[in-house]
Simulated assay, not measured.
Amino acid sequence: MPCIIVITHNNADTLRKALESLVNSELVDEIVVVDNNSIDNSQSIIREFIIKYPFVKGLFLKRNVGFAAGVNVGFRACESAEPYFALFNPDAIATRDWLKKLVEFMDKNGDVGMAQSLLIKPNGEYDSAGGFINGLGYPIEFRPKVNYELLRRVKPYEVGYAKGAAVLIRREAYLQVGGFDNRFFFYYDETDLSYRMRKAGWRIYVVPSSLVFHIGLGSRIPNKELFVLYYLERNHLLFLNKNIKTRLIPALTWSLIGALHEHDGARLKIRVRAIYDAIKLMLGHLVSDPINLN
């Protein structure tokens, strides 16, 4: 059965319920939790599950390497990643058959590289029903106008990218494209992987009958608004340079104009830093992650 990889960083508020939902899911017999040096109660919760469930494994990293690198670490630790492995967020709640539905679909469709669950917020709104990557390199989410209970009856449909909160990935496809790019650290990691898979000829689907509730709180991060702004700005440019080079110069110009029109000094500073670091990464230099906002 597929190995499930969970990446954590200060997710104690939601982690216990996420893991409880996973251990009670069908087909689950291996869970690898990669902790990115949490300083809250996350590591204690993980150790509780390791003691209680022999099929739960914990990897405790000495520094925060981000989501992309964390998945690559977890993948190497999986014993049952053939033919698939799954990603699951620590702020999500699985329904019992979420994984079974994804596996059944992938078993019947050998050209599918990734299959995503239907992600619903606790209030019943859509978190992700799939999406596409537009010509400027931005991921655009579908926002269906029907109740998700109706959408669950729809057959699986093809999309442009999969969200990593609950997704099944074909090992062959993952290895063919080189796995996640560690440079993305946070945001655009799954967008980049999806783009490369589709370019390599693999297809990506949403399986609406596979339902997962996504709380969406994420990690506890100081100055989270600026943190998110930095990585969205930086990694969008990095994504374009890597995958859609013809759009890089217009996007870089637009980013500079947008930064210079910021009236908030902190936002101006972080956007300029993001552009600078994106260029460094494009040139093959290293940058320090996670960004220090102090």
Rank of each mutant, 00 (worst) to 15 (best):
L238D: 01
C78F: 13
R273L: 15
V272P: 04
S128T: 08
I120K: 07
L102I: 07
Q43G: 09
A274P: 01
I45K: 01
Y53A: 12
V34C: 08
A266H: 08
A166D: 01
I291C: 11
E225C: 08
L168Q: 00
V287T: 06
V23Y: 04
F60E: 06
I4P: 02
L226N: 00
I133K: 03
L119Q: 06
K242F: 00
G216C: 12
T8G: 03
K199N: 10
G164Y: 01
Q116Y: 05
D35G: 01
P2D: 06
K163H: 12
V56M: 05
R273T: 12
D13S: 12
G164S: 14
P122E: 09
K100L: 14
E190H: 10
A94Q: 05
M1E: 14
K163Y: 04
A200N: 09
T95H: 14
N235F: 11
C78L: 12
D97Q: 14
C3Y: 06
L19D: 00
L226P: 01
N24F: 04
I50R: 05
P122H: 10
A165D: 08
Y195Q: 07
Y276Q: 07
P90A: 15
N109S: 15
Y205F: 15
A259P: 00
V34W: 00
R203N: 09
L268N: 07
M282N: 14
Y148W: 13
L252R: 12
G178D: 00
L151T: 04
P2Y: 07
T191W: 01
L256T: 08
P54Q: 07
H263S: 06
W202P: 02
K199W: 02
L293H: 08
L168I: 00
Y230E: 11
F185Y: 09
H261Y: 13
Y84K: 12
I279K: 07
L268D: 02
S255N: 08
V28I: 14
R96Y: 08
R198V: 08
F239N: 00
Y53L: 08
D289K: 12
F132I: 15
L193N: 03
I5D: 01
R234W: 05
D277W: 03
R76W: 10
L256W: 11
V56R: 07
L232D: 05
P122S: 14
R183G: 08
L168S: 01
V103M: 01
L217S: 13
I270E: 01
I275Q: 06
Q176R: 13
K280T: 02
T253W: 13
S209C: 10
L150I: 05
H214M: 13
K57G: 15
K269E: 03
F180S: 02
